[in-house]
Amino acid sequence: MLSNKTDYRKLLMTLLAWSVGLLIFFPILWTILTSFKTEADAIASPPLFLSFDWTLENYTEVQERSNYFRHFWNSVVISLGSTVLGLLIAIPAAWAMAFVPAKNTKNILMWMLSTKMLPPVGVLIPIFLIFRDTGLLDTLTGLVIVLTLINLPIIVWMLYTYFKEIPGEILEAARMDGATLWSEIIHVLTPMALPGIASTMLLNIILAWNEAFWTLSLTAAKAAPLTAFIASYSSPEGLFYAKLSAASTMAIAPILIMGWFSQKQLVRGLTFGAVK
């Protein structure tokens, strides 16, 4: 009797949760489906759900017309470049703050966080003018620099919360055995910290890939990543639903897949460890 009741409840919850989940996911699903339609099928009335002639022509056409892969490559360079550079700067800093805390460590961490809260419009004009005068405007180098700096606080914080969980005794022991600072980092700390570093990297690539304030205001044509490329569909090309969908699907697919692997890190990284 009781098990029947729980089973019934579980079935109900399953149905409800799946419906809500599919509803939230639907815009993405619809975009993916539309990317395989012809332009005529894409605006058919009533809308066609699955019964249409599947085609790949939108994908080839988007590439041919707008050199999609150049923008894709720009996105890859910007997100990977800023993440690797950020990690190189942040790993030593987070290591030092986690294992050799000084009196002002907490203040430094909080201050770093405060830079993340600076609204981008507060520094837009100087950055724009400096970039214009130094030739960094519309270059990948310029974007890598800006994205490294805006995400550096998140990288330091995430690494710090991961490093904090590594027991200090292990380092003490290594130090007793005469390990130098650098061999300590390379042989003891790095293997233990790798999962944390990997998660930080993953989340940061996602954030950099989707960053749309600086990438839109500092690029024109040459260095435009996918965020800016898609923005060019705002009108009137946006009315070509099938091509818009194909371009969108290609822009979000890699990051969507990475994102699904990094759900937990998302909470940790974006709340700066305030929710565990």
Binding site: P27, N210, A228, I252
Partner: peptide
């Protein structure tokens, strides 16, 4: 449910 967060704002 989590998917929309990973879609870039312009898309």
């Amino acid at each position: 449910v989590i998917a929309p967060f990973f879609v870039m704002p312009t898309v």
